[in-house]
Amino acid sequence: MGLGAYVAVSGALFALGLIAILVRRNVIYILMGIEMILNAANINFVAFNRFGSMKLDGQMFAIFTIILAAAEAAVALAIVLNVFYLFDSIKPSEADLLRE
């Protein structure tokens, strides 16, 4: 399969991640959506790396992304717990203190 197929899969995954972020009203879904998006990016990185220079840049980026995703997940979950303590809810629409 060529590069186009991978890019298409990546794009679709990205879109699904966006949908997850936008339509579900639970913070955890937002996290999941973000993970999907990161994965979509990773697919792109690796695919372009593979079909591009054959050097390591893309893979290095992907690794970096995975590491950051792990860090992000940890921090995000901590935040989610705190949000839950604060608002008694994990609906993002209710955490709107930023509006004030």
């Binding site: 936008l22 629409s93 709107d96 930023l98 509006r99």
Partner: peptide
């Protein structure tokens, strides 16, 4: 736009 809701912000960004 300034709802303070991240999802909406995300929607705008998208």
């Amino acid at each position: 736009v300034q709802t303070g809701r991240i999802q909406q912000y995300a929607a705008f960004a998208v």
